[in-house]
Design a binder for these strands. Sequence first.
DNA 1: ATGACGGATCTAATCCGA
Length: 267
Amino acid sequence: MPLKIATWNINSVRLRIGIVEQFLSEHQPDILCLQEIKCQNDQFPYKNIRKLGYEHIAVHGQKGYHGVATISRRPFVEYSSRDYCGMGDTRHLATITKAGGKPLCIHNFYVPAGGDEPDPAINPKFAHKLQFLEEMLELSANANGMDNILVGDLNIAPHENDVWSHKQLLKVVSHTPVETEFLDRIRDQGNWHDLVRAKIPVDEKLFSWWSYRARDWDASDKGRRLDHIWSSAELAASLSDITIIRDARGWEKPSDHVPCIAVFDLD
DNA sequence: ATGACGGATCTAATCCGA
């Protein structure tokens, strides 16, 4: 049985529950990790999700901003969240489920955007982002004797071809060397594998986010690859497919991010 | 200027995203 895992920054799950349902029906992932749900736990649209066969729903939300949720057809053994930077905001959710006869831990992240100015001395939001990344260094794909997956909106486009113009974005938050090198370090130190780039060669431009401000997002195509799917080595070896649903950016009342999907051949 | 849109909030103007 293949295992299909998706991640999507939905930018308000209540406003966009219609396209969440559409996505689940069309693509039938086993597990979907959402970011920026922008609601409190009791406001999450549980009924709509359960109706489609996703009985297991872990929500870590807050009023108005941020918030992550992981929804699944498979039961969770347990779930937890870590309060990164001790700010009391809702940016992480770890769920443990079973896949291929082994426990599988999925970390669902919404990394701080970092504001406008890439200087921690004058911009507290950028300082927060760097501190958050510092704490992510503690994560290891080889921890806990489980298979491990790390997904989410990491708000960093690491490679030159993960942005529309490497040159023009070098000083723009999300693609500055301090951020991209930090993300590389988190990945390498934790023995994580970047599954999207394992399947789609780095000489190909690849984006998962396009600004709402562009007059025509598709024609100008000034996107960035901010959403990621990483895994431990064993899982990476069983990866069978990666898809970025670019079309979703053109759906009715879209999120500015699109879903990314990984499929694993387990057993 | 890459680009001024689009979400939530004690409904109106303000904060936030990246």
